[in-house]
Nucleic acid binder design. Structure first.
Length: 947
RNA sequence: GCGGGUAUGGCGGAAUUGGCAGACGCACUAGACUUAGGAUCUAGCGCCGCAAGGCUUGCAGGUUCAACUCCUGUUACCCGCACCA
């Protein structure tokens, strides 16, 4: 047999010469569209991670073709971007030259793997024939008012010297180079992506994306439903509008916070007495790095605005206003109403600045010890629970009558001047201790519903918790009456939880252990006038109705998703096809003048002043207005990287069309991408941009589907040996070329399919690779055992049918690892036979062909088994061949396997039971015991329950 | 903090969706053969135990004749988002 390399080359040439994998322009056949994300052709070359996803989809595509589909499985290059430009800056070579070089390398590597891409449809985003249509589509956005220029504080990377979208600067770090991102004010072209926020969530319904991808998108879009509420200002006749998701807590607002950049600060600077302090804070906040902002989440900072006071619109209460950097200007209204009792951030702030905390929502517990009784009268009471502390012990009480052990409890009586007063009274009455040093009212309030045996009524108590500290153990004698009711007990902190009778009181231990926190879950409203007694959702609905009726607020939905910053101040991108004319404003370049070509220049460096390098090229910049013919200037910013990848799957359908971006006919036939594979890192950015772009085109009637992709699957990463990320610095990068030349493409492909769950990350193992090599070698050796026959060997006929079913189904479910495993199992079975038939062997090679296409074609030809596999039909199985007449099943006694018996398909339950009972080991284990029950599950198991 | 996910031998990983846990591969052990190779073949290989047998799917409970699988609680790790009101 020829060398692996020669065999692989031979078949690769065969496929090219015969145009085997080119999608047919035959719109009568059933279509299937597989797409892998086209790569950025970097200088580093192909990664084994690319091999994993390309092979997986290649296998699926090959199989689908053998099943008779017209398969589109294209490949191209996403070649605009920084690395090529960096290379150009360094070496003074036009980026297009470096890109061509890299594409050649990539393509050569992919071809060596035998991936069945349709190369006749290949293109690069940097081809003028392609970016002509990217520009054309941008103009459609522009003409519909979907592109606008705005002076915005944008994310600016000082190293790349360009603006970045929010998506590209998440975490405050430049996605490309890792530099700290700064804020800079600059005019930018924006696409109104936020208009599509709802539609982008909604459209997910029409897709079969993996759940994790859907979630990632939904989180990114960040929808929240709440209300805008207008607070009054005391000093001026003006409103301060806030956005909140919790309008139900309006009665618990104790302060307001506005973002440091909020316009009111400058607007009302005349009224503000501490303007210097505020300006100083604003400057410090602006300088904070993202690191500082995220690391110091708990440690809130801010300044009170002296001279401006807000007025709660429903209580009329005056409340202070602060500025703080925990409120962002770019979300909501840049101002919030703060409810410290029910929001953890507001809570932290209130604690630090000593602001009141008013609880308006209390959890409701139904006592498990003494649940309310039906038919009993209901009474409500306000009570206090007093936690008395002295040194590290807690003073509790044992109530004799009901054998309750808990904290001091008592109702609030009319004579009490305050909650604190009630607490003092109860401590003295129930325990006699008098030296009360300190009383602290916790903001935690809870309600409890129970049967109060001593009064024979159902009680709903609203409980406040006080922590009382004793200064000494000074004590006065308790009355005899009181002594009979209860006795005081000192309990140490460790024993406290066990000592307490009531579950609800044990929750107080959590407060003592972990400190207080804002109560953010559901409960019943208290201290809230019209909302009292309602739960969270009912209260939200009620208050929104109320606000709308009174004209002080309305329901409002917000999204985190912002408009897409669509410009970069770089050279190596699609020029934005717009011209600025003093007379006519922004004018689109006429269609017949597209594409606006990137000029050939010597200087690619970006500039510190934030202008694109194109701005220095006067021949490029200076032009005439297409509208009035007067001198005008071109836009010199270029499009972001994501532009070219936002519609490329459409171009594959009709890649050489010079008149349209894609013909309606091709669009109609190819429709959606049926299966789109890509990395998890693109689950938000690329995928959202692409869906947005497509939805816009759909709205304009330019494409027939609003969603571009049916299935989106993501492959797991391949890690280096030891489970660490492959990286140049660790020196553990595996170059696919090396594996192909030492073991062959088929071995590499088989190994990457066998390595583990396709969706999970996997660790590279040289040993595992060799295992797959041995498997393929064994397949090759089997050729010598082949005898001519056009039927399957009877001994393994059923196994073959089963394996056909298993491989077919597993591959469709991306379970390549078990598909390979099934083929290994079948091979092990064949090994037991003296000879196998040519039909056995050909079926086997066909099943293996999608994963190891070269060697299987070669063996098929060598042993003259039939037409080339790539031109043959996928094998089918017969249902009737899947069942056994005779089967081994397990017999359990009390759930433990004690024997296996052989049963026939037509055995009835009695016969199976009889066989099970007859087994010696079963006899042994049921001897002397009573048989309670015998469970017979046909074809599966017998379980004998004995006592 | 919020959201998503994972946890099974020495390792990568299977388990028809509640029915013999550990398929398949790697590593390992013993033997055979030899053209001395990335060999190949045969047998063994979860843990404890000489064995009978017992134990075992992160941990603790529960439901069931039967749980890797369902329910409750809990721990650890990974990923995404993150002061989003």
């Amino acid at each position: 047999m020829d060398s692996t390399q020669n065999i692989e080359k031979k078949w690769q040439k065969y496929w090219t010469d015969h145009h085997t994998f080119e999608a047919k322009i035959d719109y009568s056949k059933e279509k299937y569209y597989y797409l892998v994300e086209f790569p950025y052709p970097s200088g580093a070359g192909l990664h084994v991670g690319h091999v994993r996803s390309y092979t997986a989809l290649d296998a699926l595509a090959r199989k689908k073709r053998m099943m008779g589909y017209n398969v589109l499985f294209p490949m191209g290059w996403d070649a605009f971007g920084a690395p090529a430009e960096q290379y150009a800056i360094k070496n003074h070579i036009h980026p297009s030259i470096a890109v061509k070089e890299n594409i050649r390398t990539f393509k050569g590597q992919i071809e060596k793997l035998g991936i069945s891409f349709d190369w006749s449809r290949e293109f690069s985003t940097t081809d003028p024939e392609y970016y002509k249509w990217t520009q054309w589509q941008f103009l459609q956005f522009f003409k519909k008012g979907m592109a606008y220029k705005a002076k915005k504080n944008i994310n600016w990377c000082p190293k790349c010297k360009t603006g970045l979208s929010n998506e590209d600067s998440s975490g405050g770090v430049c996605e490309r180079c890792g530099s700290q991102v700064e804020q800079r004010e600059k005019e930018q072209w924006m696409l109104r992506m936020s208009d599509y926020a709802e539609s982008l969530i909604d459209g997910l319904k029409d897709t079969d994306f993996q759940e994790r991808i859907k979630t990632a998108q939904i989180n990114w879009i960040g929808k929240s439903v709440g209300a805008e509420v207008d607070f009054g200002l005391k000093q001026v006749d003006e409103k301060l509008t806030v956005y909140t998701t919790r309008p139900d807590t309006l009665y618990g607002v104790t302060f307001m916070v506005i973002a440091p950049e909020h316009p009111y600060i400058d607007l009302y600077s005349g009224l503000i007495n501490n303007m210097n302090e505020i300006i100083d804070y604003r400057e410090r906040a602006n300088k904070k790095t993202e690191f500082e902002r995220t690391q110091l989440v708990k440690d809130k900072t801010g300044v009170r605005i002296d001279g401006l006071t807000a007025v709660n619109p429903i209580t009329g209460k005056e409340i202070p206003i602060y500025i703080s950097d925990y409120v962002m200007m770019n979300y909501g209204t840049g101002a919030i109403m703060a409810v410290p009792a029910h929001d953890s951030r507001d809570y932290d702030f209130a604690k630090k600045f000593g602001i009141d905390i008013i609880p308006v929502l209390a959890p409701l517990y139904v006592s498990p010890e003494t649940p309310p009784l039906e038919g009993k009268k209901n009474t409500e009471r306000d009570t206090v629970i007093v936690v008395v502390k002295y040194e590290d012990k807690y003073l509790c009480v044992r109530y004799h009558k009901f054998n309750w052990q808990t904290f001091i409890m008592g109702g609030i009586e009319e004579e009490d001047d305050s909650v604190e007063g009630a607490a003092r009274r109860e401590v003295i009455e129930e325990t006699g201790y008098t030296d009360i040093k300190n009383v602290e009212l916790l903001s935690y309030v809870f309600q409890e519903s129970f049967y109060a045996a001593h009064k024979d009524v159902n009680r709903l108590t609203t409980n406040r918790v006080l922590v009382v500290e004793l200064g000494s153990l000074a004590k006065e004698e308790m009355t005899k009456e009181e002594q009979e009711i209860q006795e005081p007990v000192w309990v140490s902190k460790n024993e406290l939880r066990d000592f307490l009778t009531f579950e609800t009181h044990k929750k107080i231990c959590d407060l003592l252990d972990n400190g207080e926190q804002a109560f953010v879950s559901d409960g019943t409203h208290i201290n809230s006038d019209i909302l009292n007694g309602l739960n969270k959702q009912d209260a939200i609905d009620t208050i929104i109705d109320y606000l709308e009726e009174k004209g002080i607020g309305h329901k409002k939905t917000n999204y985190k998703l912002q408009d897409w910053i669509f410009t970069r101040q770089r050279f190596w991108g699609e020029p934005i096809p717009l011209i600025y004319c003093e007379e006519c404003g922004w004018v689109p370049v006429p269609e017949e003048d597209l594409p606006v070509l990137l000029p050939n220049v010597a200087e690619y460096e970006p500039t510190d002043d934030g202008e694109s390098p194109l701005a220095r090229i006067s021949e490029f910049v200076n032009t005439t207005c297409p509208h009035c013919g007067k001198p005008a200037k071109r836009e010199t910013d270029t499009m972001p990287n994501w532009a070219g990848s936002s519609w490329y799957w459409l171009r594959y359908m009709d890649p050489h069309n010079e008149k349209e971006f894609v013909s309606a006919e091709a669009l109609k036939y190819w429709g959606k991408v049926d299966w789109y594979n890509g990395g998890m890192e693109h689950a938000t950015r690329h995928l959202l941009y692409a869906r947005f772009w497509n939805q816009f085109l759909y709205k304009e009637g330019l494409v027939p589907n609003s969603e571009p992709f049916k299935v989106r699957a993501a492959h797991g990463m391949i890690l280096g040996e030891g489970g660490v990320k492959m990286s140049k610095s660790l020196g553990n990068v595996i170059n696919p070329d090396d594996i192909v030349s030492t073991h062959g493409a088929d071995t590499l492909r088989t190994y990457e399919m066998f390595i583990g769950d396709y969706e999970k990350e996997a660790t590279w193992s040289e040993q595992g690779l060799i295992g797959c090599r041995r498997f393929l070698d064994k397949v090759i050796r089997f050729g010598e055992k082949v005898v001519k026959s056009d039927s399957y060997s009877s001994e393994i006929e059923k196994d073959i049918h089963r394996t056909i079913k298993k491989v077919t189904e597993d591959m469709d479910a991306l379970k390549f690892n078990t598909a390979v495993s099934a083929l290994m199992i079948l091979l092990n079975k064949m090994e037991k036979l003296e000879s196998i038939t040519s039909k056995d062997y050909r079926a086997y090679l066909m099943l293996l062909n999608p994963i190891a296409p070269h060697i299987t074609e070669e063996l098929n030809e060598m042993y003259e088994l039939g037409t080339p596999l790539c031109e043959s039909s996928w094998p089918t199985y017969e249902e009737s061949m899947l069942v056994d007449e005779e089967k081994e099943i397990a017999v359990q006694v009390n759930g433990k396997v004690r024997a296996t018996i052989s049963v026939r398909a037509d055995d009835n339950d009695e016969q199976i039971e009889e066989k099970a009972m007859a087994s010696l080991n079963v006899q042994k284990h049921i001897e002397g015991k009573t048989i309670v029950k015998v469970i017979v599950i046909k074809g599966k198991i017998v379980n004998i329950v004995v006592r």
